Simulated assay, not measured.
Amino acid sequence: MAGIEAEEQLKELGSTLSGIEQVLDLDAMRSEIAELREQSADPDLWSDQERAQKVTRRLSYLEAELGRVEGLRKQLDDVSTLYEMAAEMDDEETRTEADEELETLRKAVQQLEVRTLMSGEYDSREALVTINAQAGGIDAADWAQQLQRMYLRWAERHGYPTEVYETSYAEEAGIKSTTFTVKAPYAYGTLRGEHGTHRLVRISPFDNQNRRQTSFAGVDVVPVVEQSDHVDIDESELRIDVYRSSGPGGQGVNTTDSAVRITHIPTGIVVSCQNERSQLQNKATAMGVLQAKLLERKRQEEAEKISSLRGESTTSWGTQIRNYVLQPYQMVKDQRTGVEVGNPSAVLDGDIDEFVEAEIRWMRQQEHQDA
């Protein structure tokens, strides 16, 4: 890369990084870290397990985020120094190394810039993800399970804790539905673009004639509710069923009727939880899931009302958003952003950052157009 071109790129990256540092407010971040460290050192903190976990998760996130920004600033200085050395020594090998480091830095700054685009009311929340098998029979159930694994692997890659609240297994293979949380700050803002229908095309492993099968699964992403949220739920409008949890093949994982299913009659929303042994704990968790879904429904209704007053037509992102083709060729393509990759295996193993980042940019663009 020519010296002047590299110098311009370094200058541009430095300017972008300065803008990111300003948006993230590093001084405020350092102050919050100091306060959280003080709280975490309090031996009484763990008397309230939920609060303690929230404090430690937030502290871990902020320390990682601050370290990431400071690391990029140092990396920017190091790459600049590398180019200076290459010029002084007129060394092509050092220049090539500097070019490679610059490209790595550029990608890392772009990824961090995406984080600054998440400024929605609930974007900083943890995410509650529900996956349902749709059209396609046994293949759709198998597809829903593959999607569950994809998101759990994505979270694992990033070091985000997850908790599976409920999984309803299909009779032959796969799952009918599942609900889980991704317990990381900005998980909702990061994953909300995944909301919609995901389409799989492949040779069905369940068809003895080896025919090509198209199957569908729906992904629903909502923010986890917090104490400040207010959602009125009339107990008389709920139907609460208890049942015995079961795993694949009907294998009992509980010997008591501890699993809980709650139906909100006015909206038809059904939520379940079976991950705890206590019926009371499962009911409390299920109520939290119901509150999250009702809060998101309320938010969507308010947005639609505002749009109708403006005379706008609202378009839902919850339509078919992505195609995964395994046969006759290999390709995963997002319908909205146009992002396309030729390695479905990597995507299904959780490598979805390219899609997620493009979605965040696309959604921000849509929101600016609607504003």
Rank of each mutant, 00 (worst) to 15 (best):
residue 273 C to D: 06
residue 270 V to L: 06
residue 238 L to H: 12
residue 285 T to Y: 00
residue 303 A to G: 01
residue 241 D to A: 01
residue 308 S to I: 09
residue 314 T to E: 08
residue 242 V to A: 12
residue 321 I to D: 05
residue 330 Q to N: 12
residue 284 A to D: 12
residue 245 S to P: 15
residue 343 N to V: 03
residue 272 S to I: 01
residue 325 V to L: 10
residue 305 K to Q: 09
residue 271 V to I: 01
residue 248 P to A: 15
residue 313 S to V: 15
residue 294 L to D: 08
residue 352 I to F: 09
residue 313 S to Q: 15
residue 316 S to R: 00
residue 302 E to R: 08
residue 249 G to M: 11
residue 333 K to Y: 00
residue 277 R to P: 12
residue 326 L to T: 03
residue 242 V to N: 15
residue 316 S to C: 02
residue 273 C to A: 08
residue 308 S to D: 13
residue 266 P to H: 14
residue 321 I to A: 04
residue 328 P to G: 13
residue 345 S to T: 14
residue 350 G to I: 14
residue 346 A to R: 10
residue 351 D to I: 13
residue 343 N to T: 11
residue 349 D to C: 14
residue 344 P to Y: 03
residue 310 R to G: 14
residue 282 N to S: 02
residue 269 I to Y: 04
residue 349 D to T: 10
residue 331 M to Y: 01
residue 258 S to Q: 13
residue 259 A to L: 05
residue 240 I to K: 02
residue 338 G to P: 07
residue 239 R to K: 14
residue 354 E to P: 03
residue 346 A to N: 09
residue 241 D to S: 04
residue 244 R to M: 06
residue 240 I to F: 00
residue 301 E to Y: 03
residue 333 K to P: 02
residue 248 P to C: 12
residue 264 H to E: 10
residue 301 E to I: 06
residue 296 E to W: 07
residue 326 L to F: 14
residue 311 G to Q: 13
residue 334 D to M: 03
residue 348 L to H: 07
residue 319 T to K: 10
residue 281 Q to S: 08
residue 330 Q to R: 14
residue 242 V to G: 10
residue 344 P to C: 11
residue 331 M to F: 01
residue 238 L to I: 05
residue 242 V to H: 15
residue 297 R to N: 10
residue 258 S to M: 06
residue 337 T to Q: 02
residue 269 I to H: 08
residue 329 Y to L: 11
residue 306 I to V: 04
residue 307 S to K: 02
residue 266 P to M: 14
residue 302 E to F: 11
